[in-house]
C-alpha cells in the first residue's frame, strides 16, 4: 500500500497528473480504488462469517441474501459510479466551441511525426511540443498500421487508425521547461518496433512554442529511445 501511494510518479504515470484530463481520471480511479477495497473486504468478511459462524447467516432468508447482495449492492454502487464516469467522459471530449490549438500526430512504424499548423506549420519527429495551459486538439492519423497515442500524465489514449482521423483533446498545465518529466508512448501493438515507439513531451509557454519547434533538430533522438536495443530489421524510413 505504501508502495502504491508513494511510488506514483514517473514520466509515464497515469497517477501523476500534469493536466486536467489525467487529473479527472485519477480522481475517478481513487474513488473506484477505495470503493473496490471496501467491497472486496465486505465479500471476504461475509465469506469468513458464513464459514465460521454458520448460524449467523441462517437468520437471513436465502431470498434476502440474493436480493440484498445480488441486486441491492450493485444498485447502490453502480448508478452513481456509472453516472460520474459518463459525466467525466463528457468533459474529456473535444468540443467544437473550445478555441483549441491544433496539432497533428501522424504515426508510422515506428516513429511519430508532429505537425503544428497553428505554429508556422513546422514538423518535429518523436518530440512533441505543447503550449502550457492551452487546450490542444491532437488530430491522429496513421500511415500504416494501428498505433495509439498516449501521454499518461496528460489524458487517456486514443488510436491512430489508417483511413480515419481521430481527435484527442488535452491540456498540459505546468511542467514547462522540465526536460524528461512527461513522456508519451504508442500503446497499441504495432509490430517489432512497438517498444521503441516512444516520444518526449516538452511544454513551453505559448509565446515560446514556435522558437522551440524551430530549434528542434530533425532526427534528434529522444532520451529514452537510445537506451532501447533497436530491434533487428527496424527500417530507417517508415514503410509507405
Amino acid at each position: 500500500m505504501a508502495l502504491l501511494l508513494g511510488g506514483c510518479g514517473g514520466p509515464l504515470s497515469a497517477l501523476d497528473p500534469a493536466g486536467p484530463g489525467t487529473a479527472s481520471i485519477a480522481r475517478l480511479w481513487w474513488m473506484m480504488f477505495w470503493g473496490s477495497a471496501a467491497i472486496f473486504l465486505l465479500t471476504m468478511v461475509l465469506f469468513a462469517i458464513v464459514m465460521l459462524r454458520p448460524n449467523w447467516g441462517a437468520r437471513v432468508s436465502p431470498l434476502r441474501w440474493i436480493v440484498c447482495g445480488g441486486l441491492g449492492l450493485p444498485a447502490l454502487v453502480l448508478p452513481p459510479l456509472a453516472g460520474y464516469s459518463l459525466w467525466t467522459g463528457e468533459a474529456l471530449l473535444p468540443t467544437a466551441d473550445r478555441d483549441a490549438v491544433r496539432i497533428e500526430a501522424e504515426a508510422a512504424m515506428w516513429s511519430w511525426t508532429f505537425r503544428y499548423p497553428d505554429h508556422g506549420g513546422a514538423e518535429t519527429v518523436d518530440i512533441l511540443h505543447l503550449p502550457e495551459g492551452e487546450p490542444v486538439e491532437i488530430h491522429l492519423t496513421s500511415r500504416d498500421v494501428i498505433h495509439s497515442f498516449w501521454i499518461p500524465r496528460l489524458t487517456g489514449k486514443r488510436d491512430n487508425i489508417p483511413g480515419q482521423v481521430n481527435v484527442l483533446w488535452l491540456q498540459a498545465d505546468g511542467a514547462a521547461g522540465e526536460e524528461g518529466a512527461i513522456e508519451g508512448t504508442c500503446a497499441e501493438y504495432c509490430g517489432i518496433g512497438h517498444a521503441a515507439m516512444r516520444f518526449e513531451v516538452r511544454v513551453h509557454p505559448e509565446d515560446k512554442m514556435e522558437a522551440a519547434i524551430a530549434a528542434t533538430p530533425r532526427g534528434d533522438p529522444p532520451r529514452m529511445r537510445t537506451e532501447l536495443p533497436v530491434p533487428a530489421g527496424l527500417p530507417v524510413e517508415p514503410l509507405r
Partner: peptide
C-alpha cells in the same frame, strides 16, 4: 455485475444456511 453478484451471493447464502 448483477448476474455475477447473484451467483456469488447464492453461494454465500447456501453456506450460510
Amino acid at each position: 455485475v448483477v448476474p455475477t453478484a447473484i451467483q456469488i451471493f447464492a453461494w454465500l447464502a447456501t453456506f450460510a444456511h
